[in-house]
Write a protein that binds this DNA or RNA. Structure first.
Lengths: 152, 152
DNA sequence: GCACTTCTGACCAACAAGGTCAGGAAAGTC
DNA sequence: GACTTTCCTGACCTTGTTGGTCAGAAGTGC
């Protein structure tokens, strides 16, 4: 139930690419500096994003990375899935495939609801939203509550 | 962003205890059988739940486990936290403590929203809800959508 | 004293997390 | 064609987590 460093890094790098827009490719080194991410680790992450068709790249002088699609068509969910795999799997299998018996029968619905609520947030926010700071109202309201900021 | 076997097992065992109510202590062996959980592994989990004050136990003949509090006062969130630690930490630190720079500034709000949405579901459902199948309306609605049941 | 059941720590194999290192392969420049 | 730049790839490494098992100690009821 935690967010890995890899996923956090991936989204941050992607945000930086979204902000760069069409100003030519951005070097890995610049992304690493801008977001304070270990360069070699970041390169592996960017490669994964490339394999998933989220990012494109060119080598050599004047080379670098850029988004494969417009920033308002790339959601955070996509990026997280690319580096972490499916969201909210239980025991490494999707919740709809698990069979519960006895008195835990309705637990399946709970895990489904967990996944649905995660999707609402992660699929609702695009890189364009993230960079502009104009989050969808559902997400903005969740983050606006004072209560959401206290540890528990 | 996944639910561990341990957390799943813990909730299932707790549900079984909730269903047993005041009918005396339930043996670990019976819980293990009812929910098809490896006994020795389950005993470690139950011990953790005991340390967190969620469950109580007695040894010897006529011994077993029972809930420390009424089933409608124990939330799924508590159980998950007991065995998995804090919910939705990023890079093992709470999202409110991370400092984001550059164009990823608003990512913090996104992770806060992720945590808030998880809390809504997990803190909203008690063991009594789970056993009766009468989930809170927010959770029920999330799980009711056809879309929530398809993989992505 | 004995059967029963929880409690506890040690151990274990496999895998993930979070990286580092070394070199290969394109792309552009001179 | 040589050289530089930058991405691409695989190998490796340390530490911790996951999902368990094993053996025995210790409390409880009869």
């Amino acid at each position: 139930m935690r967010v890995s460093a890899k996923a956090d890094y991936a989204v941050r790098a992607a945000a930086e690419l979204a902000a760069a827009g069409d100003d030519g490719p951005v070097k890995g080194e610049r992304l690493a500096e801008a977001q304070d991410i270990p360069l070699q680790f970041l390169e592996h992450i960017l490669l994964e994003l490339k394999h998933h068709g989220i990012v494109r790249a060119r080598r050599g002088a004047k080379g670098g990375y850029w988004l494969a699609r417009p920033a308002d068509e790339v959601t955070i969910a996509e990026i997280v899935r690319a580096v972490e795999g499916p969201i909210a799997h239980v025991q490494s299998t999707p919740p709809e495939d698990i069979e519960y018996r006895g008195h835990s029968e309705h637990l399946q619905e709970v895990w489904i609801a967990v996944r649905a609520s995660l999707r609402t947030v992660l699929e609702g926010v695009t890189l364009a939203d993230l960079v502009s700071g104009e989050l969808p109202s559902v997400v903005g309201e969740l983050a606006a509550s004072k209560d959401a900021w206290v540890a528990r």
